[in-house]
Each structure stands twice: as structure tokens, then as C-alpha cells.
Design a binder for these strands. Structure first.
Ligand SMILES: [Mn+2]
Ligand SMILES: [Mn+2]
Ligand SMILES: [Zn+2]
Ligand SMILES: [Zn+2]
Lengths: 139, 139
DNA sequence: AGCAAATATGCAACTAAGTTGCAAATAATT
DNA sequence: AATTATTTGCAACTTAGTTGCATATTTGCT
């Protein structure tokens, strides 16, 4: 889809990053996925062309640095990343992990109030919520 | 302190676990710390006596399984664990990571309402909140 | 206390996510 | 097209956490 290409390229342009084939491909993959992906999942979805894992990690790092991407959660020692374009400045939607099947989902419909700082000098900038329980498939 | 020894032994007894020297020591370390520790930190606080890391990981696993311990957060690829005795069934206190110095703290004074499940068939059992911002030391 | 069964521990070898340095390739700028 | 700034691929490395198995410890029972 040329649509996605344009959108991905635009996102990189706004962030003032080199628009390389690798970066455009990875942003497209994340746009299509609409959910957090690990390095391995990204590599897989980039197709048969060679995408070195180092390159993927470095691109993720860059995208996180400019705020286009967030680390959503860590599952089985692997970080999972997603585009931040549906998150507010102060928090993303919660993520939910099923304790039965181990799957993780984005719960876009839920939001919690921001925590209030307790006079102790902590300045809270962002809040992440992770939920556990049973997914629809596991009753 | 014999106090801690007794408390640790009691906790293991209630959980129906063998009261081994290693387990008692590790539960005592976690009681004293009052905050999440990594395997390496636990090993260090167990003192000069030899505590194999495999043993520590297996004890943590056991303690998590019976609910005495929670994984509080992952920092620099290392899981950090703490006793669950100050947590409710549905959520612990939030943890806070300073984006400047990287330190993580327990915020015992803060609690958020539980998220409500959104008619989508997800059953929410537990909620974890992680906060980011600036700690008192970093203004 | 002494014994047998159940369980925990130590060791060595392994797994796999993520990192680092550097040379070659590609993108932006002129 | 040439120059410069930046990215990519490769190989080698780091390190949290795991696995299998032999040995040691705990427990319940006599
Ligand atoms: Mn998400
Ligand atoms: Mn805590
Ligand atoms: Zn499930
Ligand atoms: Zn700080």
C-alpha cells in the first residue's frame, strides 16, 4: 500500500530522521500490526529480505528516542514495541496478559486516572498500566 | 535478628514449603530490603556464603508460585522481586522509575482504582502500575 | 537418634536477547 | 556527480536466566 508508505515516510520526516528503506519498512510493519511486536516478530514481518537484528534494534532505539515508538511490555525476556501515535503524552492504553494462554492484548477502551504525586518530591511524567487475567479465548 | 528468622520460617511454613537455610536467608533478605531486588542483589545480600544463582532463581520461582513474592519490574533486562505481603490481592503499590538517574522506588502511598473490564470478555484479576518521572534527588 | 522418601542445591554447560566496533553501503546536501 | 552525514551488516561479545544430573538437605516416621 502506497498509503502506508507515505504515512511512514511522513512520520520519519516529521521526526527529522533519514528516510531509509529499513526504517520505512519497520514503521509500516508497526502501523499494520497495530500492536506491540518484538524484534523477532518485526524481522519476520519485514519479509524475506535481509533485516539484520542489530539494524532492527538500532532502528527501534532511534524511534523510541524521538517518541514515535514505546516499549509496551516485556514478555519472556523479549521487549515488545508499538507506535505511540494512539497514546497520550502521559499514558498509553493498558496492556493485558492472559495468565492462562500467555497472550497479550492492547485494551484501547480502558483508561485510568493519572496517579497523583504524594508530596514526596516525585514528579510523575508518565504512567503505564499492565493488567493480568483471563482473555476471551480462555473464558 | 532472631525475629526475622522466625518470621521468615513462619512464612515458609504457612506456604507449606521446606524450611531450608537458603530459603530462610532469602526471605530474610527480602524482608530487610523492603523493596524489589534482582537475583544479583539478593546474592550479594546473602553474604559471603555461597549462594548459587541457579538456587536463587529456583527459590524465587517457588516463592512466586506460592504467592509470597511478586515480580515488581524489569530493569536493564534483570527482573526485580519483592515480598507480596504489603500488596492486596488485586494490585501492589506502584513502582516509580526516575528517567534521569534510573533509580526505581516503591510508592506505597499511591493507589489507583482498578480498571473495569470493557464488555469484551476480558476478566481482569490483577493490575500493575509503573510510573516514570523525576525522583526527589533529581529535582 | 536413625532411616527412607521427598525435595533442594551446586555445578557445568547451555540459550537467547540485546550490545559493540568497525568497514561497507546508503541518504542527504552541495 | 561529488562530498558529507548517517545507516547498515557482520562477527564477536555480554549477560540474565535455564536445564540436566549428581549430591546434599529436609522431613516424617519408627
Ligand atoms: Mn498497545
Ligand atoms: Mn515495591
Ligand atoms: Zn488466554
Ligand atoms: Zn533520579
Amino acid at each position: 500500500m502506497a498509503d502506508l508508505d507515505i504515512k511512514a515516510a511522513e512520520m520519519l520526516k516529521v521526526a527529522n530522521l533519514y528516510r531509509t528503506k529499513h526504517r520505512v519498512t519497520i514503521v509500516k510493519v508497526l502501523l499494520k500490526a497495530g500492536r506491540p511486536l518484538s524484534q523477532e516478530q518485526i524481522a519476520h514481518r519485514c519479509g524475506k529480505k535481509h533485516f539484520d537484528k542489530v539494524t532492527i534494534y538500532r532502528i527501534i532505539e532511534t524511534l523510541v528516542k524521538v517518541g514515535l515508538v514505546h516499549k509496551a511490555y516485556v514478555d519472556k525476556r523479549a521487549s515488545h514495541f508499538e507506535l505511540a501515535h494512539h497514546c497520550t503524552d502521559r499514558q498509553c492504553h493498558p496492556h493485558f496478559t492472559c495468565t492462562s494462554c500467555g497472550s497479550t492484548h492492547c485494551l484501547m477502551e480502558i483508561s485510568l486516572p493519572m496517579a497523583e504525586s504524594p508530596h514526596k518530591g516525585f514528579i510523575i511524567k508518565r504512567q503505564k498500566v499492565h493488567l493480568e487475567g483471563l482473555c476471551p479465548d480462555c473464558v
